[in-house]
Amino acid sequence: MKALVYEGIQEVNVKNVDDPKIENHDDIIVKVTSTAICGSDLHLVHGLIPNMPKGFVLGHETMGIVEEAGKDVHKVKKGDRVIVPFPVACGHCWYCQHDLYSQCDNSNDYGEIGGIFGYSNTLGGYAGGQAEYLRVPYANVGPTKIPNQLSDEQALFLTDILPTSYWGVDIGGVKSGDTVVILGCGPVGLLTIKWAAFRDAKRIIAVDRVGYRLKHAEDNYNVEVINFEDYDNTGEYIKEITNGGADVVIDCVGLDGKMSTFEKIETALKLQGGSKSAIEIATQAVRKGGTVVLVGVYGLRYNNFPLGDFFSRNITLKMGQCPAQAYIDTILKYIEEEKFDATDIITHKLSLDKGKHAYEIFDKKKDECIKVILKP
């Protein structure tokens, strides 16, 4: 089959690889109809996630048709149209039983945290879904059947960015009347803005440095926007214009934010896991007693982490990988009832054969690219 594979830092290609096969009785094989490139895929391509072998199939936002099912699979069957959430989860360990699917104890033999499709050997070694076919283990837990009246474009983001953005607003406790700051206007950030508005936040401020992404937020969601390149201290500026800071700050950037020269050196030497620029903005942009949520992906340990700034102002920190399975049914209902639509962030639909080009325009912010869907 054809698949997008990692070929080294800043290098991906479409290659022919072996078709996946049923390995366990609760596996399914999905014939992929749509897949997407996620901002966290770029962390792999930039060499920020360890144990990424050449030839590894990328992608963790995937949906399609069940082609084959193991004999113990009862949740879905051959011919069903399904989305596949990005965490690989067994469904029966303590963490899965407590809706912490992303921390599954049984899905990653290589480390303590749970497995993720297409995300290196560090996260379980599971081949990803930017391919013609995908093997899905624990198929009675993750895959969810999608109604035929919904298009792929309406449903695909249930695999990751819709639950992740919803979860950030949920654990942040965003409520009616709140002031909310969203750091990063990529796909997750834009959807987080929409969920904050869905929860009736009174004031939403979106922060980025990419002009067309800020324009999308301003034009489509009617929110305030700030280009952080325009200010010496963006966090202090936000504190000033909000009379003390926001109730909730949600970091949708993660380790791939703008790095200082020192951070670039530390990251290259594996002394630090990328940028913490968004975290530093958050320390000042949040009010005393407020909440900061990190949904952008971070790695390794961080030097000069501003812990004292959070501690001295009684800030609540919440973070981690979204347990997507816990939110899919709720969000799917909103989509079916036409209460929420995420399709406005889609800027490009390309064939899988154009995957290398898709990564380039997404990574380099070319052609006003926000979100790419690939069709095998």
Results as ranks from 00 to 15, higher is better:
Val223Glu: 02
Val223Asn: 00
Glu224Pro: 05
Glu224Thr: 06
Val225Ile: 11
Ile226Tyr: 02
Phe228Gly: 06
Glu229Thr: 11
Asp230Glu: 14
Tyr231Ser: 06
Asp232Cys: 05
Asn233His: 12
Thr234Cys: 01
Glu236His: 10
Ile238Pro: 00
Ile238Tyr: 00
Lys239Asn: 12
Lys239Ser: 09
Lys239Pro: 01
Ile241Met: 06
Ile241Asp: 03
Thr242Phe: 00
Thr242Trp: 00
Thr242Gly: 03
Asn243Glu: 15
Asn243Pro: 09
Gly244Phe: 04
Gly245His: 03
Gly245Tyr: 02
Val248Ile: 09
Val248Gln: 03
Val249Cys: 01
Ile250Trp: 04
Asp251Leu: 03
Asp251Asn: 10
Asp251Ile: 02
Cys252Arg: 05
Cys252Asn: 09
Cys252Met: 07
Val253His: 00
Asp256His: 11
Asp256Pro: 07
Lys258Val: 14
Met259Gly: 05
Thr261Cys: 12
Glu263Tyr: 01
Lys264Thr: 13
Ile265Cys: 07
Ile265Tyr: 13
Ile265Ser: 08
Glu266Ser: 08
Glu266His: 08
Thr267Gln: 01
Ala268Cys: 08
Leu269Asn: 11
Leu269Pro: 05
Lys270Cys: 04
Leu271Ile: 09
Leu271Thr: 07
Gln272Phe: 01
Gln272Lys: 05
Gln272Tyr: 02
Gly273Ser: 00
Gly274Glu: 01
Gly274Trp: 00
Lys276Met: 13
Lys276Ser: 11
Lys276Asp: 12
Ser277Lys: 10
Ile281Tyr: 03
Ala282Gln: 03
Ala282Val: 01
Thr283Ala: 06
Thr283Ser: 09
Gln284Gly: 08
Gln284Asn: 13
Val286Asn: 06
Val286Asp: 07
Arg287Lys: 13
Gly289Cys: 01
Gly289Trp: 03
Gly289Val: 03
Gly290Phe: 01
Val292Ile: 05
Val292Glu: 03
Val293Ile: 02
Val293Leu: 00
Leu294Met: 14
Val295Tyr: 02
Gly296Trp: 02
Gly296Arg: 07
Tyr298Cys: 10
Tyr298Ala: 05
Tyr298Leu: 08
Gly299Asp: 15
Asn303Ala: 14
Asn303Ile: 14
Asn303Lys: 15
Asn303Glu: 15
Asn304Met: 12
Asp309Ala: 15
Asp309Leu: 11
Phe311Ala: 15
Phe311Lys: 13
Arg313Glu: 13
Arg313Val: 06
Asn314Leu: 12
Asn314Arg: 12
Asn314Phe: 11
Leu317Trp: 08
Lys318Cys: 02
Met319Pro: 13
Gly320Ile: 07
Gly320Trp: 00
Gln321Arg: 14
Gln321Ile: 15
Pro323Ser: 04
Ala324Met: 04
Ala326Glu: 09
Ala326Leu: 00
Ile328Cys: 04
Asp329Cys: 08
Thr330Met: 03
Thr330Gln: 07
Thr330Glu: 12
Leu332Thr: 10
Lys333Ala: 12
Lys333Arg: 14
Glu337Val: 07
Lys339Glu: 15
Lys339Phe: 07
Phe340Val: 10
Ala342Leu: 03
Ile345Ser: 00
Ile345Glu: 02
Thr347Phe: 00
His348Glu: 06
His348Cys: 06
Lys349Ala: 06
Lys349Thr: 14
Ser351Val: 08
Leu352Asp: 04
Gly355Pro: 11
Lys356Leu: 05
His357Gln: 14
Ala358Glu: 03
Glu360Cys: 07
Ile361Gln: 05
Asp363Glu: 15
Asp363Gln: 12
Asp363Val: 05
Lys364His: 09
Lys364Glu: 15
Lys364Ile: 05
Lys365Gly: 08
